[in-house]
Design a protein around this nucleic acid. Structure first.
Lengths: 188, 188
DNA sequence: ACCCCAGATGTTAGTGGCTAACAGTTTGAT
DNA sequence: ATCAAACTGTTAGCCACTAACATCTGGGGT
């Protein structure tokens, strides 16, 4: 890790942190990218060099690849169980600080329509990853159809669990909520 | 139906039709709202008076309330079955022309990320409608959680069926694909 | 220790989605 | 026929986002 890389990561985190704070306190629409840049002590152009869009200031995280590899690592069994276990394992959270940050982001993703839409769209990419992990390079269309439908169904249910978790201010056990949501869908 | 109402509906349809055509032929990003307005013979402001955003030019339809009332009209039974039947009944299509129009819109909703995201987000509103139809004014949180999780799971699976249908250029039976998708998730 | 390039940042100018405010016109009810 | 309400166009402006160019700073090769 170079000094340059470290500075880059620092700047990125500072920009995102100030963005979440401003969006939460002042409002997403009421905060311009220029405001975020000024708060972080950089120019607007720098913000765009780190985050493709204003929405990505809230949406960006590193969980999706984790979920994908967790699915691939699950032992054989019924599809919903494998996908469910993988989602639960990804929900194992880090520090309290990390949790608060995730919670703030999640609240924005729920309340701001544009962010909610993009967050749901990320399920699309996650479903792609799950399909790739389970079907590999065998593009048997019928099998892929079944896996993709199941994956999207699981992700939809898990999303409801995420919302519920945010409503409890992060008090509830996220993995438990995911298990509960999938259980009420599949009945076991 | 007034003359004024009729003209308004005519203008609205003309604008949307030209928009879909331009988006399909020229590209969504490459087509400005001004281009759409010019093609429809109105001003850009008029377009925004009929459609809140450029995205709504593609997304707007009247199916969501139909789905909601279809869910409410289903006879008692397991939740996934009731929701699934309702989705199938909404998928009963109209004329060939209507089908081609829906297909064109769907292709855009799949290939343009911003449209795909907003389309998925509309599941959110549909889930709300389903929950309202099935839970009524009894906000027992645990029951609502189960219904919402199931609804989102069904909608996620149905979405995969929609994509598949578009991939077959509308040749396949949409209601059958939806039944197939839900069947592969719930296994009956 | 020096040089020099690559990468990070800032500045400027411009496009396009979207809104507010004002003005002119058409429609429908009385 | 008249008047209010609704539809439309014009203008001006905000903001997200991009491209192009200038600047500076860190790091590898000598």
């Amino acid at each position: 890790m170079n000094l340059r890389d470290r500075q880059r990561a620092e700047t990125r985190l500072a920009v995102q942190t100030h963005a979440i704070r401003l969006f939460t306190d002042v409002g997403y629409d009421a905060t311009t990218v220029n405001d975020v840049a000024a708060a972080a002590g950089v120019s607007a152009m720098t913000v765009y060099r780190h985050f493709t869009t204003k929405e990505d200031l809230v949406l960006y995280d590193e969980y999706d690849p984790l979920t994908a590899s967790a699915v691939a690592a699950q032992p054989p069994g019924p599809l919903p169980v494998r996908i469910g276990r993988a989602l639960e394992s990804t929900a194992a959270l880090g520090s309290t600080q990390e949790k608060a940050f995730l919670l703030a982001r999640l609240r924005l993703m729920i309340s701001v329509p544009a962010l909610r839409a993009r967050h749901l769209d990320s399920q699309y990419a996650t479903a792609d990853a799950i399909v790739a992990a389970l079907c590999g390079s065998s593009p048997e269309p019928d099998e892929e159809f079944r896996v993709r439908a199941t994956a999207m169904a699981c992700l939809g249910a898990a999303h409801v669990a995420l919302i519920r978790w945010a409503e409890t201010d992060g008090e509830a056990d996220l993995a438990g909520l995911i298990r509960q949501a999938l259980g009420s869908v599949f009945g076991d």
